[in-house]
Design a protein around this nucleic acid. Structure first.
Lengths: 228, 228
DNA sequence: CGCTGCGTTGAGCTTCTTCAACGATCGTGG
DNA sequence: CCACGATCGTTGAAGAAGCTCAACGCAGCG
């Protein structure tokens, strides 16, 4: 039996009767992954879904030529691979731990049973999926309609908004991974960071980025301005 | 009161007790839109969601410079704008009728009540959203990892698979709209179609495209081949 | 200490977009 | 029924953004 206190605060399980946690605990199992370990491949049969406990996981696609596009970076508390539960039965992308990670795995059938008995759980899951859809719509817009400087600016502003240290963004992932998340390659990202520094929009200290010109970044992100 | 026979066959409502249809009919309303009419704008408060009855609707984003990216093309039977029901309250993109269209509108609260009382409806909605997430993952992959010829080839093969007339694809939308759906512009699409014709992968007769080399298109779509 | 992965920079090239012009098609109103 | 305008589609030439390839510095870790 597994301690699921972490999960009680989780958005997905909010409002769930206490008794149900025991039932959940009896059907789920903890799994650990080392940095770089694959959790599942695209196309694998989806036997269940996961909730992050600690560490960090990336969901990504990879092309024939080896270029990678990260779809999500998952942090503690977030569920992933829920899609395989409700539509089709295979995972739509790959998942890899990008640091040592601990996750909880919920087998498909047992969870599906519970969800159909618990309207609040179903509603929470609907909210989760809807949120994901929003993120995806945003991602498609960014990749298709904005140039790399705009995407980077939007990313920095978003990270800054969610960070405690206003004005200083601590990149949670390597710059190579960030490039892949933004739909570009490390070389391009590096050049654009350099340009932003030269234009005094930001300063870089390794993995920390200091935001000097918040308004300038907003204009870049909105496409009102360019980094010529 | 509205006749909802069309909806009984709808995936979303499959398995719903007959009595619930009366309840649904009492809360929903029919709406008509002319070609080119806006159904809602991105950011509008989402008062409910829609199901297509007839016609065709596009969901799209638009950039500062006016470039458009189509996220979905909706055909009869498909629901849209469900996201606004469950997460946030605003529509995440714009919707426009691209032909004369009829839709049914379901107000938020009434539908939300019903869904929390009907597990099967909740499960169907989860399946719908999950399917959308898959589509989006696929779209991000295509736009980010494939070049335009690859995306076009993938589109043609998909349309052909879902069409009755094997080997002949009837484009359901204009080529300009198709360009926007594929994340490019009409000029580029036109040039690539011309190249594909020259390489005898396809033939074009207006809005009909004849597939001459199915395997060649597959190789293009998978990135194993290029249209040099 | 050396290896490996990360990050940076330069040069050249490919793909795609932009801008412009023009032909074809379609729907509509006279 | 024809004529007109609007939209759509095509093609050319030029330019820009980003990618590829290559080289190299650097840091962390075994």
């Amino acid at each position: 039996m597994l301690s699921l206190e972490h999960l009680a605060n989780n958005n997905l399980f909010k409002g769930l009767p206490a008794g149900d946690f025991d039932e959940l605990a009896s059907i789920c199992q903890e799994q650990k992954f080392k940095r770089g370990e694959i959790i599942f491949h695209e196309g694998d049969v989806g036997l269940g879904f996961y909730v992050m406990i600690s560490g960090m996981v990336k969901i990504f696609k990879i092309s024939m030529e080896g270029k990678e596009q990260i779809l999500h970076i998952l942090k503690p508390g977030e569920p992933f691979a829920e899609v395989a539960l409700f539509a089709g039965s295979s995972y739509p992308a790959n998942a890899m731990a990008i640091e040592k990670s601990k996750v909880v795995f919920f087998p498909r059938q047992a969870f599906s049973d519970l969800i159909s008995r618990r309207p609040s759980l179903a509603m929470n899951m609907l909210a989760t999926l809807s949120f994901r859809l929003r993120q995806f719509a945003h991602m498609v817009e960014a990749i298709s309609l904005k140039e790399v400087p705009g995407r980077l600016a939007a990313y920095l502003l978003l990270e800054n908004k969610e960070s405690k240290t206003k004005g200083e963004v601590h990149l949670p992932i390597t710059k190579s991974q960030l490039a892949s998340l933004l739909g570009t390659i490390p070389e391009t990202l590096s050049r654009i960071l350099a340009k932003m520094v030269k234009q005094e929009l930001i300063e870089t200290k390794g993995a920390t980025i200091v935001i000097l010109d918040d308004e300038g970044l907003h204009e870049l992100a909105e496409g009102e301005y360019r980094l010529s």
